[in-house]
Design a protein around this nucleic acid. Structure first.
Lengths: 372, 372
DNA sequence: TTCAAAAGTTTGATCGTTCAAATCTTGAGT
DNA sequence: ACTCAAGATTTGAACGATCAAACTTTTGAA
């Protein structure tokens, strides 16, 4: 294949100068219609495309946003970030923005990667996921004036309204509250909550949604709240074992809401194994697993999350980066309200080996075990 | 933030010329050790990073590989490409290569995107997924001399060894054969196959794996093969309904192998609903769903697939593109052998509503329905 | 000591684009 | 016809790196 055509080739073909071609491409309004048409024909004929690297070198921007992709896919709900990535790519594409992926083992390595990408003018801005309290990454980014937006609130109290920190998040409180109220409307009157240990801001937010609903609508007291509030790690087996212990202790429980689909699935299995396979259970994330198994779940509308993230970074419509100070007056964050997707569940019957969870998996094959 | 340091800043600080700094970075061997050290110190002190766009403009390469990311996540097995993407990103990162995402609604749009990315010198090479027979994309890429590798064989007979088409694929035949033989070793003697209609090369490949195993080890005749070979679309409901019909028709069936986890999950539900929840079933893909539900499955070792793809594009170790003709003598493709991951399954009990599949889902919520 | 070859370093040109300033063209008002 | 401003187009410089060739220094053998 011959050398790709440059702007000069087009200029020659249309008998105009470089700059006029450039103007046709970037500011068509200032070019006389007749010449513009001539140039456009030449562009089409030569199938000319601007050389992105050259443009970047001159303009000092790349129309590219980077996001870290973790090596490991952590089970059921792990696909959430993948779904976000799909939505983000799609939305970005519509704005002429592209998504670059990178990996990093830890926050320090991620910062180094960011520095490299940034210095190379490869990337205009960054999308951070899985932020945590006192995250060193956001601190560094603010300090070095690197544009970014996070999927996830900064949970530190004063950070929440820090104008230099743009963020989008899903309103776990509202989602969990809607789920709980839905169960109440369907007739449940004693609803338990399966969540994570009280370290994660996200988990506590969802827990408060349940608390608020049962206090308002079922007049739960503190005793009830404590008795029906379970905290386990986000593992199917842990949720299962916890719920197996919970249900016989309180026969009146007639509903469960869970902080994730993983927990919900564990709860479903537990309920079935103690003869309560009719127990209504609602999860969170609307994962593919949940969809397949007929689990009702709170759906994080990731399209809206992705759109919000790009809006904060790039403004309402364009593809150009808005400097964060220039966005004065606009909100610096978006809180997306998720919505319940209700399904008729499959009923599960647990395996015989509920009591020996570690034995439920074993790899076979001559080369390597399956990783999760 | 002040202007980022350039190579000239470093040169000045180290009292050498541009080019020497460049040499320290790219061909350190030809620089005298004493000066090299001086330059390295200056680089560290200024925290200098080469400007990627400038380098690309000069070198005409980008160290970036692009891959299309589909907007939709099609259910259970759809996550396969996501898992591949994770593996690819990780492996690429180790070689100093980055992954750029783009979207396209159809093959024609994808070709246009590729043309744009290519012309902009944004991307050195492309990874194509979900190739099909007579794929216009591969044709165009070969014709325009654009480097690429596909995840998926070209199923056209002569294309398979076309030296200009690099490909990596998973050996579905071997995987399905292993799965079938595993069931036989565990005591099954009449094993059915649930696959896709005979259009997809992938599906037929897996079917042949089952056929070969049961012919060799169970001495199946053509009648048996036909009676135990089901073809349905890759939907849980379809598989369920088909298996519900199959099992009562032949009481001796004591095992099923399926072309995907989606089908396998449908089969599990069907088996449970006709009182055969003990029926051994093996899926394909080792999806997160399957992992959660304890489904035995054939795992596509995507690490190896990703590594293979990069090896074909870039050679054994480096980050530099190998021109496909320069790779003469080496193989132009990789066929990865997948391996069975055996698990103890949860037993499922189907819902009452098996007979009315369309009613198993309904969205609730005041704003919008959950999309899939 | 001399000189050519090898090793090390510097200079000028170049990649393809956009910006800033300069130049040329058009048109209205007098 | 003349002037001046606004409109349209062109030219030179810059972005930050690498390549190729020129130049300078060191090395080793006669």
């Amino acid at each position: 294949m011959a050398r790709l055509p440059t702007i000069d080739d087009v200029a020659r073909a249309a008998k105009v100068s470089r700059q006029t071609v450039s103007n046709v491409l970037n500011t068509p309004a200032i070019v006389k219609p007749s010449t513009r048409k001539r140039v456009e024909v030449a562009i089409r004929k030569l199938a000319y495309r601007p050389h992105a690297s050259a443009r970047r070198l001159r303009m000092r921007k790349s129309s590219t946003i980077a996001i870290r992709l973790d090596p490991m896919t952590n089970g059921i709900s792990g696909a959430l970030l993948d779904r976000f990535l799909h939505a983000l790519t799609e939305q970005a594409d519509a704005r002429g923005i592209r998504i670059l992926l990178f990996t990093a083992a830890d926050p320090a390595a991620e910062i180094e990667q960011i520095r490299k990408l940034r210095a190379g003018a490869d990337v205009d801005a960054f999308v951070l996921t899985a932020t945590f309290h006192g995250d060193p990454r956001t601190e560094w980014l603010v300090e070095n004036d690197v544009p970014f937006v996070t999927f996830g609130r900064p949970w530190g109290a004063n950070d929440m309204n820090d104008p230099s920190h743009l963020w989008v998040d899903v309103d776990g409180f509202a989602g969990m509250r809607e789920a709980t109220i839905h169960l109440i409307d369907e007739g449940s009157s004693r609803i338990g909550f399966i969540g994570w240990p009280s370290l994660s801001g996200t988990g506590d937010d969802r827990r408060r949604g349940w608390q608020t609903a049962v206090k308002e609508r079922l007049a739960f007291g503190d005793d009830d709240l404590a008795a029906l509030d379970l905290s386990v790690e986000d593992r199917l087996e842990d949720a299962r074992d916890a719920v197996v212990a919970l249900l016989p202790s309180d026969e009146r429980i007639d509903g469960l809401v869970c902080a994730s689909d993983t927990l919900a699935l564990g709860a479903m299995i537990a309920a079935a194994s103690v003869g309560r396979s009719d127990l209504p259970i609602i999860g969170f994330d609307n994962s593919p697993v949940g969809q397949a198994i007929g689990l009702s779940s709170v759906d994080q509308t990731l399209d809206e999350v992705a759109a919000g993230a790009l809006e904060l970074l790039l403004g309402e419509t364009g593809g150009d980066l808005v400097h964060r100070d220039a966005a004065a007056g606009n909100t610096r964050h978006r809180l997306i309200t998720p919505h319940l997707v209700s399904r008729q569940p499959l009923r599960l019957l647990a395996p015989d080996a509920v009591s020996t969870p570690t034995a439920t998996k074993n790899a076979v094959g001559n080369h390597r075990n399956g990783k999760e």
